[in-house]
Design a protein around this nucleic acid. Structure first.
Length: 548
RNA sequence: GGCCCCAUCGUCUAGGCCGGUCCAGGACACCGGGUUUUCAACCCGGCGACAGGGGUUCAAAUCCCCUUGGGGCUACCA
């Protein structure tokens, strides 16, 4: 029976790394018949946004990762927002202070920075020099009056601390090489380290599953637990997910791609770009030339302005790109972990049923988008027609597709005709022509040249004939259309492509669409004929004469 | 710089704890072919890895050491 927890700081959207941690928290808890708790770590007043916690929760729910205890659902250790638990932390801070295991300090950020620089100059790790005697209450008062910073530090014990990790085995640290941690900040909020240790105890957390980036924090946490008389949970530090360029995946990856694109493109209207992103020109320049990074909405807006795709990092990015949560869950579950079964396409329930905590591996893994694509296709195939429809409608809404207004029956036909598609976006793109006004259809010039104009306008000629044949069909459905097209091809002694491609181009403007028979059937006879006529009119005088 | 983690096909991984059954298996990608009304999908085939060096052993992908390479942390962020 494992009680696990996912403890995000609500600084924005849930990203892929957080989702993976949350997933394994869920798997571990569910497999052992335990509980999965969600706790919001909002102890950094400057970085939290009120909507971010909700966003993170929405993202988790979209993925199908539902918590047993936490915000929105309650639980025995309420509240689950750390910012609402200050008096609890203060109680334990006082306990540490009273027992001499913690002490006040008054350095400013600048002073600390100086000390760090000095240590670096000596090629040493910075370790805060613990005073021989600790400041007393009146010293604290004095410091406050003087307007100095007041923080509380925890006395790290000197002894060796062993982290017993499920994934990594025993990892040893020397307490003497770890600086006394700040546990209470100048603003009266506890630091992550402290709040996390207190809450894990109070919320009965038995297993802490998190990314390897936290391994170095763990000895500090264990020391804190000992000092407070708490139990030490089981630790499992998972390998990290890295992106193509190396380094763990982060929202910086998106900004980086955007920056490169801006640098490469010539003659960009920088003013317009900045305003599209909702930032001023100075901020944009600092972004391009320096290390400054605009926030997520600004990056997204600028990418949209430039009509470019950024690598997906946040869960919503994947949603907007047409991925299914089931595919995403399946894919990230197999990063740094392998299920003890002989197949790879797995549902969340199968992942839970087969979960085995001994099957984590220690190596970092690269996020391979091509493989994700393949998983997405498999999961599209796995869904029932109704489930797929409902997912598809959600998708259409979020990307503002004109297809969002279509009725269910039509969308179901579109979906059925889209077997083998890899993303929902692909389906939407291939069927947009059904939801576009005739005169808004844009023709792809290359395709026009190739299938309509070449060979003295063979394709156009074909279209004219096709129009008549279509009109003469007694009934219109995919079967009669197919028979007619095949018959015509045979009669002309040409491949079906010679007949189908001009038609495809006429109705959707490109040579890529859903299968042609269904396409015509869904579009309807009238619209099809209208589009053929429009196409003929538009290109009749542009026939490329072959030069011998 | 200091501390810590890691190392099997291009990628995700199986195998490693209990050395021989592994001249290393699967999936994705890639390449070739087939199918075909486009793009996909689908079918068949192919390419492709134990980072390097030392040990230990009758025997090492598996155990030990070193080197190299990658990653993480090094905040009054989490």
């Amino acid at each position: 029976m494992a009680v696990t927890r996912f403890a995000p700081s609500p600084t924005g959207y849930l990203h892929i790394g957080g989702a993976r941690t949350a997933l394994f928290d869920l798997l571990w808890a569910k497999k052992t018949g335990g509980k999965f708790v969600l706790r919001i770590e909002d102890t950094d007043q400057s970085r939290n946004s009120p909507t971010a916690a909700k966003q993170v929760m929405d993202d988790l729910k979209w993925l199908g990762i539902q918590w047993d205890q936490g915000p929105q659902v309650g639980g025995p250790a309420e509240p689950y927002f750390q910012s609402q638990r200050l008096d609890i932390y203060n109680k334990y801070i006082k306990q540490l202070l009273d027992s001499g295991k913690a002490y006040y300090c008054f350095e400013s950020a600048d002073e600390l920075e100086q000390m760090r620089k000095q240590a670096a100059a000596k090629k040493q790790n910075f370790i805060y020099q613990r005073p021989k005697t600790f400041p007393n209450a009146s010293d604290v008062e004095k410091a406050k009056v003087q307007g100095r910073d007041v923080v509380v530090r925890f006395c790290m014990p000197e002894e060796e601390i062993v982290v017993d990790d499920v994934i990594r085995g025993q990892v040893k640290f020397k307490g003497s090489e770890i600086s006394d941690l700040i546990i209470l900040k100048n603003d009266g909020f506890p630091t992550y380290h402290f709040a996390c240790v207190v809450d894990d105890e109070l919320m009965g957390i038995t297993h802490v599953i998190r990314g390897q980036e936290h391994l170095m924090n763990t000895p500090g946490h264990i020391a804190l637990q000992k000092a407070l008389g708490f139990k030490t949970p089981v630790y499992a530090h998972m390998s990290l997910t890295v992106s193509e360029g190396g380094g763990k995946m982060s929202k910086r990856d998106r900004a980086k791609v955007l920056k490169e694109a801006i640098k490469k493109s010539q003659g960009l209207d920088m003013e317009a770009l900045a305003s599209a992103g909702g930032i001023n020109i100075t901020e944009l320049e600092e972004f391009i030339s320096g290390d400054a990074m605009p926030d997520t909405p600004a990056v997204d807006a600028m990418a949209e302005y430039l009509h470019m795709d950024l690598p997906e990092i946040n869960i919503v990015d994947f949603f907007k790109s047409g991925y299914l949560p089931q595919a995403l869950v399946n894919f990230i579950a197999l990063l740094g972990y392998s299920a003890p079964v002989d197949k790879e396409v797995l549902t969340l329930q199968e992942l839970i049923d087969t979960f085995d905590s001994s099957r984590f591996n220690k190596t970092n893994s690269l996020f391979d988008r091509k493989k994700l694509l393949s998983f997405n296709m498999e999961h599209i195939k796995l869904l029932s027609a109704d489930e797929l429809l409902s997912r598809y409608k959600d998708f259409l809404k979020v990307v503002n597709s004109p297809a969002a207004k279509a009725d269910d029956a039509l969308l179901k036909r579109v979906l059925k005709a889209s077997e083998g598609a890899r993303t929902l976006a692909e389906i939407d793109h291939k069927s947009r022509f059904l939801f576009t006004e005739d005169d808004k259809i844009e023709y792809n010039q290359k395709d026009v040249d190739k299938v309509l104009l070449n060979n003295n306008g063979q394709g156009l000629t074909m279209l004219a004939e096709l129009k008549e044949h279509l009109r003469n069909l007694p009934t219109l459905n995919d079967k009669t259309i197919e028979d007619m097209l095949r018959g015509l091809a045979e009669q002309k002694q040409v491949g079906l492509g010679k007949v189908a491609q001009p038609l495809r181009l006429a109705i959707c403007g490109t040579t890529i669409s859903l299968p042609i028979f269904e396409s015509i059937d869904m579009l309807g006879l009238e619209a099809t004929v209208r589009r053929i006529e429009r196409t003929i009119k538009k290109f009749a005088d542009k026939i490329v004469k072959e030069i011998k």
